[in-house]
Design a protein around this nucleic acid. Structure first.
Lengths: 337, 337
DNA sequence: CTGAAAGCGCTTACAG
DNA sequence: CTGAAAGCGCTTACAG
C-alpha cells in the first residue's frame, strides 16, 4: 500500500504505538496467544495492517532460537523422477508451515558441500538430501553432529543410523525381469546406470531373476552409461547391434527407457511388438511415451512425501528410532513390454 | 567434530575468547577485512575451526540489514521446461553467492500468495516469479511497493514497469507454422494450451503464418487443453478423427507434442512420415523422443540464466531502467516435422 | 590495528 | 491481562 521506507523498517514497536499497547502484547497477538483478549488482539491486528507491518521472521527466529526453513538438496532435476520427488517434498513441507531452501548439485560433490554449508549457516531446521555420486559415507554422521536432522533419499550412504526413504531397487528390477522372462524372452539386455549402490541393487535383482530361470548372465548385454535419454538411446543402439540380437531389455530407469524407445523407432522397431522394454520409476511421462512404457512403479511422489514426513517427525522428536521407508515396487504394464 | 551443544551455540564471542581478541576483530576477520593483520586473522580462523564455530548468517543479516536469499517461484515443475529454467536460475544465483528459497505453486493462486508472503517475511532480497494462471496484474506493483526486486518469467503480467524474461512466442510459432506450410501442409491443427497471454501470442503467430499464405484459419482444428502429455495425447486423437484429416499440427509446447507422438504411434502413424508435428520450447528430452521432435528452441537454460542476471542487476542498482529479455526463437528440425 | 558500545527486530520469563 | 527488561548472534561506527 504505502511505499515502504527502506531506511527504517516498520516494527512491532510501531504496531505497539499505533495500537496503544506494549510490544510484548503485539508479539503475543502475532503468535496467536490466548492470553490476549479478542478485542485487544483485533485492535493490534488492525493497526498492523494499517501501518503495513510485516513480520520479520529472521529476527523472531534468532531470538526464539527456532527455524522454519528446511534445506532440500537434489542432484538431478533434469530427471523427472527427481522433479516429482522435489514437488512432493516441497508441498509436504510447506503444508507443515516450513519454507524450503532448495539446491541443485548436478552431481557435483563440491557444490553439494558448499550448499550444505550454506544451509547450515542459514540455520536450517533439517535437511533432505539426494546425495550426489561419491558422497562420503560419513556425511550423515557429520550432519547429525551439527545437530541438524537429516533424511537421505534414493541413494543410501552405507550402513549407519540415518533416516532414509527410497525404493526397493532389487525387488523392482527382479519383478521387471521376471515379467520379461515370463513373456518368453531369453536374451535380455540391461541398459544404463552409473556405478553406485542403486545400480548394484538393481543388477542384483536382474541376476536373481535370471538365475531363477537358469539363464546365464551375459556380461556383454550389460551396457552402462549415464542414466539419461541420450545414454538410453546410445546403449540401445549398441544392444541392437549385438549378434544374436537380444529380444528385450531392462532399463536402469524410465529416462533411459525413453531414449531406448527412440533408438528402437529409428531402427523401425516398436517396443511391445518387436522388442520387450521395461523402465524403472514410473514417472508421469511414462504413461504417454511412444509407446506407453511398461515400468516399475516406485511412486516418486509418495517417496518424496514420506521423506518429508520422516524429517518432520525427526524434528519433532529428535531421539526417535531411525526410520526407513522403502517403497514396495509394483509392475505397471503398458505397451512397451 | 565435537558434538555441538544445543543449549548454547558457539558464537563469535567464544572465538574471540579462544583467539584472545575482541569480538569485533573476529567479525572483521570473518568478513575478510583488510584491517586485520594476517597473523591475527590466521589465529582467529584457527580458533574458529578448533572450537567448531559456524557463522550465524541470520544474525549477521539482521544486524546488517542485508539478505542473501532470493525466492524463486515456479508454477509447474512437472514440465521439464520449467525444471530446466529453475536449474539455470538456481545455478546462476548460487554462483553469485545467494541461496534460493524455492516454492512450487502448481498453478494454485492461493499457494502463490502464501509463498510470496512467506518469502517476504523471510527477508528475501529478490523474487523470480513464473506466475500462476490468473495472477493479478497488480502483483508486480505490489511487490515493488514492498521494495523487493522482482523479475517475472515466461508469462507477462500485462503492461507495467517490471523486469521480464521470456520468449518471443508469436515469432516462434510463426516460424514453426511457416515451416509446416513450406513442407506442403495445408490443413494444420493447433493442439493444447490454456487461455492466457502465452496462448494468445502463440495463436497470433499461428494465424499470421496462415494468413500470409491465404489459408483460412479453421476454428475446428484449434483444440485446447491443459498443456500436458495427457492433453497432447487426447487432443491429437481428436484431431486425427477430423474429416478430412489434417496432415500436420503445431503443439502448444513440447510436452503436448510428446503426448501427440504417443497418439500418433497408437494409430500406427509416425510423425515425420505420416504427419508433420512441431513442438515448442526445445526441452532436453526433445532430442530423444520417438521420433526426435522438431521444435522451436527458446533455450530454457539461457532464459533462466538471464532472468537471474536481470534480478542480480536490479538488486545491485535498484533504479536502473526496466529490462526485458526475450529469447529469439530458432527452429530446430529433427524428425517429427 | 583493536576494543567498548549500541542496536537489528523480535521473544520470553517475570512482575504486577 | 499487560509492561519492563534481558538477550538471540551478529555488525558497525567510533575511540584510542
Amino acid at each position: 500500500m504505502s511505499t515502504s521506507n527502506s531506511t527504517r523498517a516498520v516494527t512491532i514497536l510501531d504496531v505497539a504505538a499505533a495500537a496503544q499497547v506494549s510490544k510484548s502484547t503485539v508479539s503475543l497477538v502475532l503468535k496467536g496467544s490466548a492470553l490476549i483478549p479478542v478485542e485487544t488482539a483485533d485492535r493490534v491486528r488492525a493497526a498492523a495492517v494499517k501501518i503495513g507491518y510485516v513480520y520479520n521472521r529472521r529476527a523472531g527466529e534468532l531470538r526464539g532460537r527456532t527455524s522454519k526453513t528446511i534445506g532440500v538438496i537434489v542432484n538431478d532435476l533434469t530427471n523427472p523422477f527427481f522433479a516429482e520427488i522435489l514437488v512432493a517434498v516441497e508441498r509436504t513441507l510447506v503444508e507443515a508451515g516450513y519454507i524450503v531452501l532448495m539446491a541443485h548439485t548436478n552431481e557435483d560433490l563440491d557444490r553439494q558441500t558448499q550448499v550444505i554449508g550454506a544451509m547450515r549457516e542459514q540455520g536450517a531446521a533439517g535437511l533432505v538430501l539426494c546425495p550426489a555420486y561419491g558422497t562420503p559415507r560419513t556425511l550423515p554422521k557429520d550432519v547429525q553432529a551439527w545437530n541438524i536432522p537429516l533424511v537421505v533419499m534414493v541413494r543410501t550412504l552405507g550402513p549407519g543410523r540415518y533416516d532414509f526413504a527410497g525404493a526397493d531397487n532389487e525387488r523392482g528390477i527382479y519383478l521387471a525381469t521376471k515379467h520379461l522372462l515370463d513373456a518368453g524372452h531369453r536374451s535380455i539386455g540391461f541398459l544404463g546406470g552409473r556405478a553406485g549402490v542403486v545400480l548394484e541393487q538393481r543388477l542384483k535383482g536382474f541376476r536373481a531373476a535370471l538365475a531363477e530361470r537358469k539363464i546365464v548372465f551375459d556380461e556383454d548385454l550389460l551396457i552402462l552409461t549415464k542414466p539419461t535419454r541420450q545414454g538410453g538411446y546410445e546403449t540401445m543402439l549398441t544392444l541392437l547391434d549385438k549378434k544374436p540380437r537380444p529380444t528385450a531389455a531392462i532399463c536402469y530407469n524410465d529416462v533411459v527407457a525413453f531414449g531406448a524407445l527412440a533408438a528402437l523407432g529409428e531402427r523401425g522397431m516398436r517396443a511391445g511388438n518387436d522388442f520387450g522394454l521395461m523402465g524403472f520409476d514410473n514417472v508421469l511421462d511414462a504413461a504417454h511415451s511412444n509407446p506407453p512404457l511398461s515400468t516399475v512403479d516406485v511412486r516418486p511422489g509418495e517417496l518424496g512425501q514420506h521423506a518429508a514426513e520422516i524429517l518432520l517427525e525427526r524434528i519433532r522428536v529428535p531421539e526417535r528410532a531411525r526410520q526407513t521407508f522403502l517403497v514396495d515396487p509394483q509392475l505397471v504394464l503398458r505397451q512397451s513390454g
